[in-house]
């Protein structure tokens, strides 16, 4: 789920950046630092949308660096248990398939794939229904439900299921080609 929230961060800045564009420097450094990072609490920080406030800088003893507390608005993405997301399949193997929804990797075990879908190995491994009408392979888009998440320092890993109503392939690259 995406959230638009306000976060705070202390930015350290080298004195050489002090000047009339100090604020710009802080902003660009902030973007560089936080966009794309992941925290367990908030999930992935997708983009910074604005700066709420830049506090008063504090000179650090000994280094000359200055610390500014910056409050910024940002869009974060955090997957939740039970959430239904759409994802792109990145890899299929006999244990299941991996899909990605933005930065989040989701694994769907073959236990969580409907029983009528069978694994077909080969050049393009895939899961296919017995009548061949539905096929999950690399680059398929699937709708799945997240049933578990694991949050690390740098990534969020999820377990998903498509063994439920209204879940499964939503667009199949193989169908058109």
């Amino acid at each position: 789920m995406f959230f638009h929230i306000v976060l705070e961060r202390n930015m350290q800045l080298h004195p050489r950046h002090f000047g009339r564009d100090l604020r710009d420097k802080i902003v660009s450094k902030l973007m560089k630092d936080v966009e794309g990072t992941c925290s367990g609490r908030h999930g992935f920080i997708v983009a910074i949308t604005g700066i709420e406030s830049v506090g008063k800088g504090l000179i650090r003893d000994g280094t000359g660096f200055v610390t500014f507390p910056v409050k910024y608005q940002c869009v974060v993405f955090r997957p939740f248990k039970g959430e239904v997301v759409e994802a792109v399949v990145t890899m299929v193997n006999k244990m299941g398939f991996f899909a990605e929804a933005g930065p989040v990797q989701i694994f769907v075990s073959n236990h969580l794939i409907p029983d009528d879908m069978e694994f077909q190995s080969g050049d393009m491994p895939n899961y296919t229904t017995s009548d061949g009408s539905v096929k999950i392979q690399k680059d398929s888009e699937v709708r799945l439900k997240i049933i578990g998440t694991r949050v690390d320092a740098t990534e969020i890993f999820c377990i998903g299921t498509i063994k439920d109503d209204f879940l499964g392939v939503i667009s199949d690259p193989g169908a058109t080609s």
Binding site: V27, S28, M31, K32, D33, E35, G36, T37, C38, F44, V46, A47, E100, G102, P103, Q105, T154, E155
Partner: peptide, 26 residues
């Protein structure tokens, strides 16, 4: 660069370690 680039080509790039993604910005 600052506003767009990271979103386009860095931020979601799974191969960049997530933390400070835009090392090559400037």
């Amino acid at each position: 660069d600052g506003m767009r680039t990271p979103m386009r080509d860095r931020a979601w790039n799974p191969y960049t370690p997530m933390s400070p993604p835009r090392d090559n910005w400037e």
